[in-house]
């Protein structure tokens, strides 16, 4: 029962996030979606990741959005979409419908018993490679973000490129 309510909540929040006119509001709806997803995770027994999702998805990412929207500014963009909306509707419904039609019945199984902990163990020793790669990803992400956002310095091209090797 809870699950159905949360399911509806998730879908409504997500839909509001893409529909609401102001970006800031959309970011907040996204945070709401994230929070509900975290609850759903909790109900699945994934306690640790639910917390992380709550803090990162609902917290950190929202903060980032707010920052970005502050810098970039709310901007009225015509609601008119660039491709015909019916086409978008139909194609998404067909694609998702195909998936749902085929996949959902196959998931009609018992949830299974909840295994005990072991998340830390799995993360720190089992999936070590993924973890190392996460640090690499963060490093790459930070480098890229710094490069993208840094203010333009005095244009060096003209001075440096004179002396071609």
């Amino acid at each position: 029962m809870w699950h159905i309510i949360i399911l509806i909540g998730i879908l409504v929040c997500a839909f509001q996030a893409i529909r609401s006119e102001r970006l800031l509001v959309a970011a907040l709806w996204l945070a709401g979606t994230s929070a509900l997803v975290a609850i759903m995770m909790y109900l699945l027994g994934a306690y640790q990741i639910a917390v992380i999702e709550l803090s990162v998805g609902a917290g950190l990412v929202t903060v980032l959005f707010v920052f970005a929207i502050n810098i970039a500014g709310e901007e009225p963009i015509p609601a008119l979409s660039l491709i015909p909306k019916p086409l978008a509707w139909v194609s998404v419904i067909v694609a998702v419908g195909l998936l749902a039609w085929q996949i959902l019945p196959l998931f009609d199984l018992p949830l299974g018993s909840l295994q005990g902990a072991g998340f830390e163990e799995m993360l720190w020793s089992g999936r070590k490679v993924d973890l190392y790669l996460q640090t690499a990803l963060i490093f790459a992400g930070v480098l890229s973000m710094v490069a993208l956002l840094s203010e333009e310095q005095t244009h060096k091209v003209s001075t440096h490129k004179e002396d071609n090797v």
Binding site: S81, L82, I83, L87, A88, S91, A95, L98
Partner: peptide
Amino acid sequence: NWNVFGIVAGLILVL
């Protein structure tokens, strides 16, 4: 948008 539409269309096609 059209680029993403390509992805969706490809998905439908392949499925």
